[in-house]
Structure formats: C-alpha cells, structure tokens
Measured scan of single mutants.
Amino acid sequence: SAVVMEEGSPGEVPVLVEPPGLEDVEAALGMDRRTDAYSRSSSVSSQEEKSLHAEELVGRGIPIERVVSSEGGRPSVDLSFQPSQPLSKSSSSPELQTLQDILGDPGDKADVGRLSPEVKARSQSGTLDGESAAWSASGEDSRGQPEGPLPSSSPRSPSGLRPRGYTISDSAPSRRGKRVERDALKSRATASNAEKVPGINPSFVFLQLYHSPFFGDESNKPILLPNESQSFERSVQLLDQIPSYDTHKIAVLYVGEGQSNSELAILSNEHGSYRYTEFLTGLGRLIELKDCQPDKVYLGGLDVCGEDGQFTYCWHDDIMQAVFHIATLMPTKDVDKHRCDKKRHLGNDFVSIVYNDSGEDFKLGTIKGQFNFVHVIVTPLDYECNLVSLQCRKDMEGLVDTSVAKIVSDRNLPFVARQMALHANMASQVHHSRSNPTDIYPSKWIARLRHIKRLRQRICEEAAYSNPSLPLVHPPSHSKAPAQTPAEPTPGYEVGQRKRLISSVEDFTEFV
C-alpha cells in the first residue's frame, strides 16, 4: 500500500504489510482489554486508547508507543517513533504512522508483537499521559499493580500540603484535648505513684524565703500560729474566702420596643432579638451553673441549684474572672410580681450592659438600685453597626469618660462592650471603697496581704499580753509611738528610695 506524505515531511518511507502472525497476537491482546472507555466527539468514531511506554525494544532499544483501536470491530496495532508526526486519522481507513528506516525489517515488528510479559508489566506500571491515566485505574490494570491496600497518609489540604495544625504542634487546635488526655493517663497511674504529687513543697518555699535578706529584721520574721485558738483558725479560714484573682460581676439587660421607661417590662423579658443573642455568645463562655464549683469559678452570688437559672456566661484571663448576670437567662416566676429574684442580683451590680433595642433613649435610673454606678448603652444600628456610649452617676464623672461614643461592628461589639464594662467596674470598686478611707481597694491579692498582716499583728499583741517580758514586734495601731529626735535631713532622693524599699516589703498600697 502507498502512503501520501504530508508537506514538509521527509522522503517516502516504505511501509510494510503486517504479517498475519502479528495480527493474531494483537487480536488476542485486544480481546482481554476493556472496550468501555469514554466516548469521543461525534466527528471521530468511538475508540479506546491506552498509551504504553516501553523502555527498550528487543534487539533495537527504541521507545515506541502502542495504540489499540477497535475500529470496525477489528483491533489494530500502531507502532510509531515518538519524534515523528502521525498522519491524519479517518473512520474509513486504518491508522497509518511513519516509521524510521531502522524499523524497515519486518522481523523487528514480529519481535515487538512478542514482547515478554516482563516488558508489558513494566510498561503498564509506568506513568501514563492524559486520558490513558484514568483508564489505567480500571480493573483491567489491577493485575499489573501490587496486591494489598496502599499505606494511609496524613490529611492533605486542597493545595496538596499538610495542614498547619499537623506541622506545628504548639498551634494545633487540639492541644488542650491532648492535655486532658495526659491528665487522664496520670489519673490511671499505679498505686505506688499515687503518693507522688507534682509541684513545689510549701515548706521548701518557706525555707528559701526565711533565709532571704527580706527577713533580716525582727519585724519581718515569720511567727508560728497558735493551734489552740479558734479565733485565729477562723481568720485563716476567712483568708480562703478572698480569692487571689480579681472578680467582676456585670449585669446584662435587654430593652425591647416600648420598654425604655418600664423597669418591670425590662426585667420580665425572657429572650431578645437575634443580634442580641449573637452578642451574648461573644461576651464569654456559656457555663452550666450546676456543674460549677464556687471555689474555682466566680459566680457573683448565683445559685447553683437552679434558683437563678441553669446557664450563664463568664469570662476570665490570667488575673481576673468576670460573670454576667443576664436577665433573660434568669427564670421569670409568676409568684414574683416585682421580679425581686432578678433584681437582687442586677440591682447590686456596679455596672450594667444595656442592649437598647427600643429605638428610644434609655435613662440612668430606670433600673432603681443603690449600686448602679455605670451603664454601657448598646444601640443597634443599620448595616451591622452599633452605637456604644457610657452613662454614669455624677459622683463617678471624674473616673469615667462619658463624652466619647463609639461606632462598632457586630463582630467586635462583644469585645468592646466587655472591656468598657470591666474598666468601669474597676473604677466603681475604687469609688465605692472611698467610703472607708482606711481600706482603699487596690486588688484582691493586696486584700489578702492586708488580712495576713492584721492576723500577724493580733498574734503579736496576744503574745505580748500573755508574756509581758516579750517586746511587741508591731505596736498596736491605737498606741502612739514614742517621740523621736529629728534626724539629720537627708537628700530627698535617698528618703524616697528608703521609703520605697520599706513599702515594698510591708505593703503595696502607695504604689497603687
């Protein structure tokens, strides 16, 4: 048969007729292969192709491409040299491709048809291009793949890379869960390890502090508590009631339409708007009261037996805890006409967050109470924005700035309102402590230090009264110190430094 060459192609190359033996071998191979691939376009007849790359030819070592076609129900084999250009295909004639002069020997084609199974398996396991790669995943090629499931790999992101949580363990979102698992493993320790309690022994800490320079003076030496005195035992138990972190309780009120001037209507609300609910979820963490331990979680007086509701929101960081007394989460009882059960919590909070959804101005004093010092007013606006402002009593104007209003988005509203309420509550605590000038409020841990110092002074006084020969370590507060001759004046800087060093040991009130 003659071949018409394309323009620009090399000279004529004689194409030899395939021997009958080659056709029989390739026909047997075509019957084993699956003929249901995917359909081509209507211009080209339905056909199945599979590209198999052999590394070497037997005796020649030339890479070839073998295409199996099922045109007219008769499979045909096409061998081509890759750099050459194939002729145009037609549905009426068999596929013809040019070969190099080196394939002119018909014996070479017979060798190609009689490829060993080793070469076929190696060509099938190679990388296939384009559409033949999808075909190689079918059941027909499963014989050339190794048996057994593939090893499982770690989760992959859409980009093909490992997620960040699997790369950096410290930033993994499941870090707290692993800590819980470690605690569970520790709890399952053997009885021999049960006595080993991690941490620092208080006796060891005391020993280090006792021999430090801070205890060089007799006034700073630790003293032993009497065991037989019940009054001192009660004082030590009272110390446990003062937490070592700051605590805040903040009221949250929802004002519906037409309720801006009605205290009873505001306290009777059992739910609010959708934006109000989203605002609550951002204030803190939802907790169930019956599962809380009052000595570990500050509840601000809420009952854990269901008297004040089942849930509330709280927030904490390293040095403070805040609980929100939310009116809509507290039960509304029919027998309580004046809502006294709610007001006994909300009316005693220094700061209230008022979500004013009424469309009218909310005035300070609508919720009557002796300790309502500051109101954080949240007014929802259009386009997911809110107006946040402050209202306070006249005696609080020096501590709280009420002249600045803020426009905040719904997303950042819980954070801004919480921070403003916490700052206002700190100012309210300082303002409330002014009624007792001898006990200015600095912080909870300073209050613990003052309680310890008062307890020490009482013990020293009782020891001096029981044994008059012992001198008083600290003179009583009601006694007057003996007159001392004025010492020589020293520079102001040295006096300030000495006073600062003494105050650092005794108390921190002056620095606050």
Rank of each mutant, 00 (worst) to 15 (best):
T332W: 07
K249I: 06
L280V: 06
S219T: 11
N425R: 01
R418A: 13
T490F: 12
D317M: 01
A481L: 09
Q419G: 04
T402D: 10
Q321S: 12
F232G: 06
N386D: 03
A487N: 11
I367D: 04
P475N: 14
T402V: 10
D295E: 11
V388S: 00
M426A: 02
E257Q: 09
D317K: 02
Q457M: 08
D317N: 02
C305H: 09
I287W: 05
S273M: 01
G282I: 01
I446H: 07
F311P: 08
P491I: 09
A405H: 13
V400Y: 06
T379D: 06
L390C: 10
V297T: 11
R500H: 14
D334S: 14
H478A: 15
Q241D: 14
E307A: 13
G256Q: 03
C305L: 06
A322T: 14
G347D: 15
F350G: 02
L346R: 04
S477E: 15
Y276C: 00
Q241A: 11
V252L: 03
A483Y: 11
E462I: 05
M420K: 02
P486I: 11
G365K: 06
D295W: 05
T247K: 13
A487W: 09
A327I: 03
Y274G: 08
A405P: 14
E462K: 08
Q484P: 12
E488V: 13
G258S: 04
D361F: 05
E270L: 04
E228R: 05
I446V: 14
K499R: 13
T247R: 10
V505P: 15
F311R: 05
M426N: 01
L299G: 15
V400D: 03
V378N: 01
L239Q: 09
T332C: 12
V236G: 07
T247M: 09
A327C: 06
P222C: 09
D217Y: 13
Q419W: 05
K296N: 09
Y254D: 01
D318K: 04
H271I: 08
P489S: 12
F415L: 07
V323C: 07
S219V: 12
V236I: 15
F362Y: 13
D341P: 10
Y441W: 09
E397I: 07
T328C: 02
I287R: 08
E510D: 13
D246Q: 06
K342A: 07
G300R: 13
L302D: 15
A487Q: 12
I367M: 13
L381D: 03
L346K: 04
N269I: 01
S244C: 07
E461Y: 10
N425P: 02
V354S: 01
V404Q: 08
Q259S: 02
F279W: 01
I287T: 10
V354F: 01
L283T: 00
F311V: 06
N436C: 08
V416N: 01
P471W: 06
E228M: 10
H474K: 14
